Computed example of a mutant assay.
Amino acid sequence: MKKLLLLMTIPFFSSGKITPEITTPDSFSELSFEQLTLHRGNYLADTGCGIVSLKLFHPAEHNKYPPPASWLCLFPVDVIKDGYGPGQVLPEKVYFDKKTGIWKKKKYSLSKEGTKRSLDVYGIKSLSELQPLELYNIRSVNARGYAVINRNIPLEEKKKGVKKRLSFCLIQNHSYSAFCGFGSIINVVDGKEIDFTPYMLKSLETVEIGLPEKSSIPRD
């Protein structure tokens, strides 16, 4: 019942939208994409999303796609409760405002221990070196949630070349499933560094969760 009440507080829509609006590259084309279909075996954690489909947009001039992401299927009640932030050792977090039905950011103070850990994790000397999170409210084909762009990269990942990460969670309309994912959002294609942020955000607008098995079978 608790899960049902939480879901009832979230207004759902049927068409895609990103808030605030984003600027796409001049060369962006909705015809340049790879159709991605995820099954049970694709999730690190699975609570019953079933088949999830989305279009992975990419630059029209490059037949290359965003870097691989890690996919999860979680309970909406946990997504709403946890939000995004505290586990990242950052002095701000993302939470769901039940009154407005949207995801918002707010700052909070790290403890002395949390501050030390943040400095160690990110390899910085002061919290002032951290960059603000970018938050987007996402409405997809049959789900709604958030996407966060985080430029604060842990030192160990930074050494591997990671510069920016995207994390998201979309809650399926009228169900107990939340489709989530995270991963690097900058990749080197043909010797050139490409920021896939606008492509991935537009991809999230196309997410469909809980499709029947027959939807994944190509039609002649």
Rank of each mutant, 00 (worst) to 15 (best):
L44W: 06
G83V: 10
L44S: 09
L72F: 12
T37C: 10
A69Q: 12
C49N: 06
D78F: 12
F57E: 01
D46Q: 06
D46P: 08
G41D: 11
F75W: 05
R40K: 13
P67H: 07
V79Y: 04
S53M: 00
P59L: 04
V79H: 00
G41V: 01
I80F: 07
S53A: 03
L72I: 03
L54K: 08
G50T: 05
C49T: 06
Y43E: 07
G50D: 02
V79I: 05
W71L: 05
N42A: 13
K81G: 09
E61M: 01
L74K: 01
V79M: 01
S29H: 08
N42I: 06
D46M: 09
P76N: 01
L31Q: 11
I51S: 02
H62A: 12
E30F: 10
H39E: 11
I80M: 02
L74Q: 06
V79L: 00
H58K: 11
T47K: 12
H58V: 11
K64A: 12
D46S: 12
H58F: 12
V77A: 14
D46T: 07
I51R: 00
P59W: 02
T47I: 11
R40M: 09
S29G: 02
K55E: 10
L44I: 05
L56A: 15
S70K: 02
G48E: 03
D82I: 13
Y43D: 07
V52T: 13
G41A: 11
L54Y: 14
T37V: 14
R40C: 08
D46K: 07
K55I: 06
N63W: 06
S29R: 11
Y84C: 15
E61N: 04
T37A: 03
S29N: 11
G41T: 05
G50W: 07
Q35S: 11
L44D: 10
D46R: 05
G48Y: 05
L74T: 04
T37H: 03
A60N: 04
A60Q: 08
A60H: 04
F75I: 05
F57M: 06
L54S: 01
G83R: 10
S70V: 01
L72R: 13
L72E: 10
L56I: 06
E61P: 00
E61A: 00
H62I: 11
E30L: 13
Y65T: 12
P68Y: 04
S32E: 04
D82C: 03
L74M: 09
D82Y: 08
K64I: 00
Y84D: 09
D82L: 07
G50A: 08
T37E: 04
L44T: 12
G50V: 01
F75E: 15
R40L: 15
A45E: 07
F57P: 13
A69W: 05
V77S: 12
H58I: 15
I80G: 01
L54P: 04
P59A: 00
L56Q: 09
K81Y: 14
S53E: 11
R40H: 15
G83L: 08
G50R: 00
D82K: 15
G41Y: 06
K64G: 02
E61Y: 02
A69R: 13
K81F: 13
E61C: 01
L31D: 14
Y43P: 03
S53I: 02
D78C: 06
L36I: 10
S53T: 09
S32P: 03
L38K: 10
H58E: 12
E30T: 13
A45M: 04
G50F: 01
T47S: 03
V52F: 11
P68D: 06
P76T: 03
P67F: 14
